[in-house]
Design a protein around this nucleic acid. Sequence first.
DNA 1: TCTTTTCTGTCTATTTAATAGACAATTGAT
DNA 2: ATCAATTGTCTATTAAATAGACAGAAAAGA
Lengths: 199, 199
Amino acid sequence: MIEQLSTPRKNRTKEHFQLALTDLTKQKGFHSVTVKDIVDKAKYNRSTFYTHYQDKYELAEDLLCSLLDGLMEAVGEPYQLKQKVNTDHLTAKSFNIISYIYENRNFFELITYQDTIPDLHTRFPETILKIYQEKFEFETINHLPVDMDYFKRYTAYGFFGLLSNWISTGFETSQEEFIEEVIRLSRTHIAAVRFVGER
Amino acid sequence: MIEQLSTPRKNRTKEHFQLALTDLTKQKGFHSVTVKDIVDKAKYNRSTFYTHYQDKYELAEDLLCSLLDGLMEAVGEPYQLKQKVNTDHLTAKSFNIISYIYENRNFFELITYQDTIPDLHTRFPETILKIYQEKFEFETINHLPVDMDYFKRYTAYGFFGLLSNWISTGFETSQEEFIEEVIRLSRTHIAAVRFVGER
DNA sequence: TCTTTTCTGTCTATTTAATAGACAATTGAT
DNA sequence: ATCAATTGTCTATTAAATAGACAGAAAAGA
């Protein structure tokens, strides 16, 4: 009698629709993707689509949220640090944002398209910023006094710029090399990082 | 009242199990893949697995058949030729075996693994041979008389050797370049090809 | 422009694939 | 030798998925 909002079965079906939308968006651009295209690709009945989503925009929103929420959560675990870490000791392990994006590159490649998932181009960098705001604490080199809000925005968008390039070039440089580059640039003005706990 | 042997819904579920098995086999080797692994990966209930397959071996067999049958069928269409074609006029369009393998490279990469889908290492080349036997007719350079059974076996396994290398090197050379190479080698002893119709 | 086709969103009724869970037997690892 | 995990088989249950109709909107063609 209790109808579940989320079950393994529902999630599975939704994921298949999400994957279909991702591929179709790359193929023909989001605006020209039809619900029929999606159900044909995912091999479901058209009725099934409407039991889960109102239209393709709701599906796109769901897809976007799934991956951006996933990105947020990926930061906390499993390599969460408890004390502050000097940037000259930063290791690749700290950067699970990067590995998350790489693992889900099939989705994040969508930022290289113009006619793509709605709001992706704004909400992806916003999410990076949110992570910086909520999950990290920074210490400037020589304790230079700065407005930390601005500093976080500055470094977050700097990082976003590097990420965009990494994605757009088809992940040419390896994860490890890319992380090294990010660390090198961080050291120019960040003395230490603290990863803020979830609770 | 009539129970269908194959429905879109069944096929879809089976495909998901097949994909899960493919990935897991690459990850940990076929012998150590469990049914539990498969259902966890594909996100189905374990009971569901047994409504479709007896065990992982039956799934493997199904997967193997799907792709080898697909390969057979890919030859006939859509570029089936009706008259004989001189090898110096062979074009890339004739080689839909190659494009099929490339499109399904996620599966065919399994030949680069030792502990892989049972019988793949023998049945893949056997299928290539079967295609040569049933779908092609050859004409040797200068009409040199040969036992055509042997000739087909010889050229089929030669082609298989090239394919194996192409797959093993991670599809380094492009489809087009690879096809050109195959054509060049074919010309050394094949004067003409005829694609045999299905019916 | 008008015509035709395709797609949409919403709605039924139906069914069957998927689920949950128990069970003893088997396997694998320590 | 022991313990945990997995297997294969079996129930009963259910809700996701299907089939299909419908009028209206949108897109494509003439």
